[in-house]
Amino acid sequence: MKGLNGAVRVAVVQAAPILFDKESAFQKVISYAKEASGQGVKLLVFPEVFISGYPRGLSLGARVGSRTPEGRGDWARYWESAIDIPGADTERLGEIAREYGLYLMIGVVERDQEFSGSTLYNSIVYVGPEGELLGKHRKLMPTGAERLLWGQGDGSTLTVIDTPFGRIGGLICWENYMPLARTAMYAKGIDILITPTADARDTWQATLQHIACEGRCYVLSSNQYVTKSSYPTDLYCYSDIEQDSDVLCRGGSAIVGPLGEYIGEPLYDGEGMLVADLDMSLVTRSRFDFDVVGHYNRPDVFQLIVNETKRDIVRFQSYTIANAIEA
Rank of each mutant, 00 (worst) to 15 (best):
P86F: 10
W79P: 01
L93Y: 13
G73E: 10
P55C: 11
L93R: 10
E48V: 03
T90G: 11
P47N: 00
W79F: 15
A88C: 08
S59D: 08
D84N: 00
P86R: 03
G53Y: 07
D84H: 08
P69Y: 06
P47R: 04
G53V: 07
R56P: 12
G73N: 10
Y78Q: 08
S52V: 06
S59H: 02
R92A: 04
A62Q: 04
F50P: 05
L93I: 11
E91M: 13
V64Q: 05
G94E: 13
T68Y: 12
R72A: 09
P69R: 01
S66K: 02
A76L: 14
Y78F: 15
D89N: 10
P86L: 13
R92H: 09
R63T: 10
E80P: 04
A76R: 12
Y54S: 01
G65I: 01
T68H: 10
G73M: 07
D89P: 02
P69C: 04
G57W: 05
G53A: 02
P69S: 01
P47F: 03
V64R: 09
R72I: 15
G87T: 11
V64C: 07
T68P: 15
A76T: 12
P86V: 12
E70L: 07
V49P: 05
R92C: 07
I85H: 01
A88Q: 14
W79E: 13
S59Q: 01
R77N: 11
P69E: 06
G61P: 02
G57K: 03
D74C: 09
V49K: 09
G94A: 12
R72W: 04
G61C: 06
P69M: 05
I83N: 11
G73Q: 12
Y54E: 03
R72C: 01
R56G: 13
R67Q: 00
G73P: 07
S66T: 07
I83H: 11
P47W: 02
L93M: 13
D84T: 12
A82V: 00
W79H: 15
G65A: 08
G94K: 11
Y78L: 11
I51S: 11
G71Q: 09
S66I: 06
I85A: 04
R72V: 13
E80D: 09
G94L: 13
D74A: 09
G61Y: 03
I85T: 06
A62D: 03
R92M: 08
G71S: 03
T68G: 08
R67C: 04
E70P: 06
G57L: 01
S59N: 03
G87C: 09
I51Q: 10
R72P: 05
R77C: 14
D74K: 05
I85Q: 04
D74E: 14
G61N: 03
G57E: 00
